[in-house]
């Protein structure tokens, strides 16, 4: 394996044994910079526990979780290197959003002005002087993201950041995380929203029952779930089209809406076959596999809550 860069997350043989339960079990994976990595798994899979070990909040029973080769506690200036959002409700109820951020600035040696800058970034400026107890769930989540951005870090770690965000907020976060990754930063996001992850993530790490199930680029992982991508074709001459596709060796399944789902042939080959058979086409579209389906297949039988 290559030498890890300082903004690469390296998890090796990570294990956490609680009294009766092995929450994380010999887990190894890497998170590359410049990409958004989705951290997926059923409830109780050990995602939060893994992230807390990575951030030095929970002591591993065995194994290591590091940034490059350094543990979080060994980072000389953690706030400027790593930003993390771990839970929505983590601010004093009686403190204003701005003061919550300033408190972090003081402890980290950042100028107070950073607080106002990140408040503007997450769109919380109008609520800056309101107390945390008056914040909605989505506003709390945005404050958490603002806190993570304070030190302009190279690595971002977010535990279910989409929780409580409205559709506009989810899109805003997707754009934000993608642009941060495009700047070369490392972005690790845990989530249950698989549709959202499919839009957001470049890579995924799937865990269940504390163990690694699958790791890799999203399109690879989608590939091995459903075999090949499927192609949807629509034609007024369904029977001739089915016959023409049979000569390609493709499997054809009629869909309820009258279209045909084709497996085992690419769109170009299907279009060509239709053309030579003189069949009129109204729709010809390649459909990516569905992350949700693949996820459910991969984690089937590995019960979530233990």
């Amino acid at each position: 394996m290559s030498r890890p860069g300082t903004d690469e997350i390296v998890v090796e043989h990570l294990t956490k044994q609680y009294k009766r339960l092995r929450a994380v079990d010999d887990l190894s994976f890497r998170v590359r910079s410049g990409r958004v990595t989705g951290f997926l798994g059923p409830n109780g899979a050990g995602k939060t526990t893994t992230l807390r070990m990575l951030l030095g909040l929970v002591t591993p029973t065995a194994g290591t979780a590091t940034f490059g080769s350094r543990k979080y506690v060994d980072l000389p200036d953690p706030v400027r290197e790593v930003g993390a959002v771990l839970e929505a409700s983590s601010a004093n109820r009686g403190r204003t959003g701005r003061n919550h951020l300033r408190m972090i600035c003081r402890a980290a040696g950042l100028p107070d002005s950073r607080a106002d800058e990140v408040l503007a970034t997450v769109g919380l400026t109008p609520a800056a002087n309101r107390k945390f107890k008056g914040y909605s769930l989505g506003m709390k989540q945005r404050l958490g993201i603002a806190a993570a951005l304070l030190g302009d870090p190279r690595v971002l770690i977010l535990d279910e950041p989409a929780n409580g965000l409205d559709p506009e907020g989810i899109r805003w976060m997707r754009d934000l995380l993608k642009s941060l990754a495009a700047e070369g930063r490392t972005v690790l996001v845990s989530s249950h929203l698989l549709g959202e992850m499919q839009l957001l993530a470049d890579d995924v790490v799937i865990v269940a029952a504390g163990k690694l199930i699958r790791q890799g680029p999203v399109h690879d992982v989608l590939g091995d779930g459903s075999g090949h991508a499927q192609v949807r074709v629509r034609s007024p001459q369904t029977e001739q089209l089915t016959a023409a596709l049979a000569t390609l060796g493709a499997t054809v399944t009629p869909a309820p809406d009258g279209s045909l789902l084709v497996h085992g042939a690419e769109a170009a080959a299907i279009g060509h076959a239709a053309f030579t058979a003189g069949v009129e086409l109204h729709e010809l579209a390649t459909e990516q596999g569905d992350l949700e389906q693949v996820f459910l297949q991969l984690t089937a039988g590995k019960a979530g809550i233990r």
Binding site: G56, L57, V79, A84, S89, S90, A91, A108
Partner: peptide, 18 residues
């Protein structure tokens, strides 16, 4: 105790891991 009461211990120890 307020750090645990308001769940701010996480933020505090992320900012200062020592």
């Amino acid at each position: 105790t307020s750090e645990f009461f308001h769940l701010t211990a996480t933020t505090t120890f992320l900012t200062t891991p020592h």
